[in-house]
């Protein structure tokens, strides 16, 4: 039986990585288009980020510094598990600092710290098809993309407004890429949508179970779907971070007792910790530095 050390760099064999890189390059060449690829069976379950892991594996070189986040945090169990996987199989350096990372694999968030040229952001995608819940058939949705037949997408938004007075999609909010493909940005909160377009980093999206890869090359236009008279609006909890006082970061709500007390903290743990280290302290921020670190 194969020994752990017998696995290739970053687990996948070179032939598979080349196949994935070809799909990535095609995706970069046709921004927003879902490229089918022969997703491999990974040693972690579908739904745990097998698509993102394969894309990351195909991008990694030994000199890379990898950051892995889930829900914005470096220390959630699945982020820890994926980071360990690459430490073990690729031996690359890892980091929690957004600015220091060359490759960032993420689930459900875009880091608060603006990304820079040369960085790669890899998203884990559960359902890559933005039309899926309007039309379950893959054969049909591919045709709809081919024809730019996106009327149905706007019907959904129309129905939201007629029923709720506003577009009632809070995450997984679809965007139109360079005026052509409607794309699913993965289940990031719509707060993060404005960071998709015009981003300096390469953004790659991997869906393992659904066997699709797609991409936003640097500085690509990605416009959140809306109506002229009901424009898209990014939103977040109307609070500042209770730990670092950031007024403009995406917040997790934490229930602190069973009497309805709660606090709001940055979902991006690296961002929050860096701010506190720089002396920004919120109302419930640690009086002693680093009290929340193990």
């Amino acid at each position: 039986m194969t020994d752990q050390t017998a696995y290739n760099f970053a687990y996948l064999d070179e032939q598979t990585k080349r196949m994935i890189r070809r799909a990535i390059l095609k995706g970069v060449a046709i921004p927003g288009y879902q490229v089918p690829f022969a997703s491999r069976e990974m040693p972690m379950p579908y739904g745990w980020g097998t698509g993102g892991v394969q894309v990351t594996a195909a991008c990694l070189v030994p000199e890379d510094r990898l950051k892995v986040i889930d829900q914005g945090a470096d220390d959630t169990t699945n982020a820890v598990s994926i980071r360990r996987f690459f430490q073990r199989t690729a031996g690359v350096e890892v980091t929690e600092a957004t600015a220091d990372a060359t490759v960032i694999q993420t689930r459900h968030r875009i880091p608060e710290t603006p990304l820079t040229e040369g960085q790669i952001l890899v998203y884990q995608v559960p359902i890559p098809e933005p039309l899926r819940f309007l039309e379950p058939r893959e054969t049909e949705t591919r045709k709809m993309h081919e024809l730019e037949d996106y009327g149905l997408m706007h019907v959904k938004l129309y129905e939201d407004i007629s029923r709720h007075g506003q577009i009632a999609t809070a995450y997984d909010y679809p965007v139109k890429v360079e005026g052509r493909y409607v794309m699913d940005p993965s289940p990031i909160p719509k707060f993060d949508n404005p960071k998709l377009g015009g981003n300096a980093a390469i953004q790659l999206f991997g869906a393992g179970r659904e066997q699709r890869i797609y991409a936003l090359p640097p500085y690509t236009q990605a416009i959140s779907l809306d109506f002229d008279d009901y424009p898209f609006a990014a939103s977040k909890a109307d609070h500042s971070c209770d730990l670092c006082a950031a007024p403009d970061s995406y917040l997790d709500e934490v229930i602190t007792d069973d009497q309805g007390s709660r606090m709001f903290v940055c979902s991006d743990t690296d961002f929050c910790a860096s701010r506190r280290a720089a002396g920004h302290i919120g109302p419930m921020g640690a009086p002693r530095a680093g009290a929340d670190v193990e």
Binding site: G47, A170, R209
Partner: peptide, 23 residues
């Protein structure tokens, strides 16, 4: 394998999307 993975993945953290829905 595909089915059980996707089915069970809903137990992973979804704080961020849930927070967006909550708001």
């Amino acid at each position: 394998i595909q089915a059980t993975g996707f089915l069970e993945h809903i137990k992973l953290p979804h704080y961020v999307d849930f927070q967006a829905e909550l708001e």
